[in-house]
Amino acid sequence: MKIAVCIKRVPDMDVRFKIAPIGNAVDEAGLKFDINDFDSWAVEAALQIKDKDSATEVVIVSLGSDSVQETIRKALAMGADRGVELKVARIPFDGLAIAHALAAELKGGGFDLILFGKQSADSSNGAVGAMVGELLGLPVVTAISKLELAGATGSAKREIEGGQEFVEFPLPAVLTIDQGLNTARYPALKGIMAAKKKPLDVRPAQLGEQSVSVTKMELPPERPAGRIIGEGASAVPELVGLLQTEAKVL
């Protein structure tokens, strides 16, 4: 089996972001970057297949500046076999432009599975995986939280609002991974050392044309912290009202 996993390097989200002076990006100073969570589960999914069948080759593909090499190495440390950096100065926001670059790389690669995370934590569009599948003319199943493979067919579960969908598809296929499929393994130092010696090719990305761009970024107003709305059961009506109108969760 030959599996490609497309991953993205994203900033750690546990911080309060600042907007960079250019106004349409966050200030990257002091941010920690790592593999996007959904993508790490995609890597894990590939590695679990490899665990069962050691003849599996897992190739990591990531688009970005040279700093993505660190992220690719992390996936290699987890156990993937080799990596490809599709080099760009800056990752564009336009998912289709990225999808073209990835499709160009993956085309003719003989992959049985091409895995993506469901979406990236930073640009949060959740579009690239399905776009790549479409550009390659491959079957696509998105946002899966369960996967079974049997020969040349696979079955998957997708979470939908208020239920689940069970989907069947033939291989080769493109899948995007949702939460719940697995938890990513923690790379051991041994793996980190081994990853340093694994092949990592760097090629210029052949980005598609871009029609979507970020013109401005802003911080939404901070939500008022810790509002005690009242004491005792008499505060309940106001709480329910706020949940409906303000928080919109009811």
């Binding site: 546990d14 911080v15 920690k32 790592d34 923690y186 051991a188 130092l189």
Partner: peptide
Amino acid sequence: LVLMESRFPPEIQPAFESLEKN
């Protein structure tokens, strides 16, 4: 266990990850 085999109680992985990131 940790450095060679990545074998540890699953609940400490978030601690490792936060230590690295945060």
